[in-house]
Design a protein around this nucleic acid. Structure first.
Lengths: 222, 222
DNA sequence: CAAACATTTTACATTATTTTAACAATTTAT
DNA sequence: ATAAATTGTTAAAATAATGTAAAATGTTTG
């Protein structure tokens, strides 16, 4: 599901974490020290970095600082140090999470999943509101278990609104996101979709598409 | 900086966390049980939910599940349970982080900062004065939690005045900012809006729209 | 290629907002 | 105190935004 860079000098632990992550369907590039990890990081792009703190060549803090400097890759520290001052330093360096050894394997996977979800990576999540369920993976919607046929545009728009209830989206904002850059479509097109979505979601309990006069549209829960 | 919903039934801890977060510049809405928190969550939008697990009415797991269902708000569990099986359940429910009591205050702030950074929440651009809250993102205003319907112009004007209390704005200044350049509207139009705003905000505690004779209008706190 | 479907435009009805205009109330200056 | 200027308020008129059906255009698929 996600591509993960692992930096851990303890061979046994390295192997264990590797097996664990691959078992969960992730692609793992494992390194034995911070230097090798940084090299790999420069070579490819990763969805997540899991790193030990005490390592040869480049320690976890230094590695994290380098990675932070170059982007927003989530970082999880995996370490034996169970001391708040160390954790503070970890977070200050840009850590997104901190797992203390020894750790429960399931818990590590759950924390990894939480981080990836938060970073919108491998987002296979479904949204359910009332009797409507939208599955981004399948790109289908269900109302009371029955499939609700939606076109691509309809799906995208509804999924977006549903992801941010109460937030108002301007027509322009929506078109910027779902229409080609060079699309010449009028923003009135959005209105037509909202009209269709309202018709199609008429039997949905739990939400309503509301127009914000002069601005755009929002979805409100009820 | 961010708008945080806190659910914690222990009064002392509730107060402590509240103070801590507010000291860090966040806006906090504190609730004493899960039910109240869910109600607040439906009423307004938040950047982060911090919740205890064992609470009356609705426990942390149930609250988290509801919140997860409705969007992508980050969730941090704050709990005395230091047991991996509980943590597993927390993460499975959609937790993004887990802090065990007793905790280091600085560490909590660091974890909160990490979560907000990850969620790309810089500032939520909301203003609260008395019982009125204006959320620029949602483009809605709330009085005592109830939505106060405002047109675009009304919202813009009130938000502006609220952003600079005590400062006097001339009609011309306001029109230059919110009206089209080629608009031929009379500056008397502003008067009409102020009249409407006064009517609509009649139940607002905390401020008042004051006329500065010969100049324009200003908002004063009380 | 043509049928089936998705998308976009158009046109017109409907609704909401903004502005004007008229008059009342208040403030200021003389 | 009184006239002049400014502001408050209201309802109607003018303008602007939205809803939606249907036609036109584009795209995919058998």
């Amino acid at each position: 599901m996600a591509k993960i860079l692992l930096a851990e000098d303890d061979a046994a632990l390295n192997h264990l974490v590797c097996t664990l992550l691959e078992g969960a369907g992730h692609e793992v590039v494992a390194c034995k020290d911070g230097g090798a990890a940084l090299e790999e990081f420069h070579r490819q792009s990763f969805d997540l970095l899991i790193t030990d703190i005490m390592m040869p060549v480049l320690d976890g803090y230094q590695l994290a600082a380098e990675v932070r400097r170059e982007g927003a890759t989530p970082i999880l520290f995996l370490t034996a140090l169970d001391d708040t001052s160390d954790q503070k330093r970890g977070f200050a360096t840009g850590a997104d999470d901190y797992v203390v050894k020894p750790f429960d394997p399931d818990l590590l996977l759950l924390r990894v999943a939480a981080l990836l979800r938060r970073a919108n990576i491998a987002d296979s999540r479904t949204i359910t509101v009332g009797n409507l369920t939208m599955d981004k993976e399948e790109h289908t919607a269900y109302v009371d278990g029955e499939e609700l046929p939606l076109t691509v545009r309809e799906f995208d728009l509804l999924f977006k609104l549903l992801s941010y209830p109460r937030r108002t989206f301007t027509r322009t904002k929506l078109m910027d996101e779902f229409w080609d850059f060079d699309s010449s479509a009028t923003s009135r097109t959005v209105d037509v979709y909202m009209s269709k979505l309202r018709e199609k979601t008429a039997h949905c309990t739990g939400f309503e598409i509301v127009t914000v006069h002069g601005l755009g549209y929002k979805l409100v829960l009820k």
